[in-house]
Computed example of a mutant assay.
Amino acid sequence: MTPALRLQNLHGYYGKSHILQGVTLEVGQGEIVTLLGRNGAGKSTTLKAAVGLVTPERGVVELEGRDVTGRAPYQIAAAGLSLVPEDRGIFQLLTVEENLRIAVRKGSPWSIRDIYRIFPRLEERRSNGGGQLSGGEQQMLSIARALLNGPKVLMLDEPVEGLAPIIVEEIVTQIRLIRDAGVPILLVEQNLAVCSQLADRHYILELGQIVHEASAAQFRSDPETIDRYLGVKA
């Protein structure tokens, strides 16, 4: 089966700094895949290169077998690759419902009713301004807006960073529901407990290169590798 997303030998630069040095990974249909690594390894840059925010110097980005390498970000988004960035990027002065309505895309299988089913907290806050939401609620809104575009693959950059444990649990449940609804997910996350709960497979990135790949079971049973590359005791 053709992978939902494939990055092949991706190289990317910030100025003269060679950040991505041949990144190769794939996300299969129905999978949640994590991209792990220390700070500065190139995780966020990988996501940005996939959606065209960083122009790859070499390599290929394929979305369901379709080459989208080097296209403008709006073209890649229209093709079905959605990134929820770390800064969330919601409109602070618009209400929750207004934030959602401007994200609705014609032909998308996702409606605002679907969003409220997965994110009941957003329905409760639908008349609140984006700037009145907690950090966790803003994260939910950012993910919800991406879904309304009808993504073929959803990429999440640090979705639970800095959030209270009860909100983390809520977002973990919501990510599962999104995957179960048929949206494959590439997840960048530092919280290893969250990654272990969610992911089917894991990649570890170090200095712009994939240095380890493992299934969920292999990852759980190999604390030495986790400690070597991530610098934490599993």
Rank of each mutant, 00 (worst) to 15 (best):
G135L: 07
G182N: 05
M1C: 12
P56H: 03
S44E: 05
V51C: 13
Q29Y: 01
K106G: 06
H202W: 04
S108N: 04
G70T: 13
L192V: 12
L53S: 10
R201Q: 07
Y229Q: 09
A50G: 13
L141T: 10
I90N: 08
L198Y: 02
L156R: 13
A164W: 03
Q218H: 10
V54H: 07
L47H: 10
V211G: 11
E137P: 10
P3W: 00
G15N: 05
A72V: 14
Q92G: 14
H202D: 04
L186M: 05
T45R: 06
I90D: 11
V172C: 08
V232Q: 08
Q29H: 04
E206C: 15
E57Y: 11
R228G: 11
D114M: 03
E170V: 15
V211W: 03
S17C: 05
L156N: 11
G40V: 12
A234W: 00
Y116L: 03
L141S: 12
I210Q: 09
D200N: 15
T2D: 10
R58Y: 06
G182E: 02
L198Q: 08
L5H: 01
V68E: 03
I102Y: 00
S215D: 11
V194H: 07
L154Q: 07
S108M: 02
S196Q: 15
L100D: 03
Y116I: 04
G37K: 06
D157Q: 13
E123S: 06
N99V: 06
E97W: 02
L207K: 13
I178M: 04
G131A: 05
L177H: 06
E124F: 03
G40R: 10
T55A: 12
G70A: 14
I118W: 02
E170I: 14
R71F: 12
P223Y: 04
L198E: 03
A193I: 10
H18K: 06
K233R: 12
H11G: 07
L25P: 02
Q138A: 13
L35D: 01
Y116H: 01
A103W: 00
R176T: 10
V168T: 13
T34H: 05
M140H: 12
A49C: 12
P109E: 00
N9W: 00
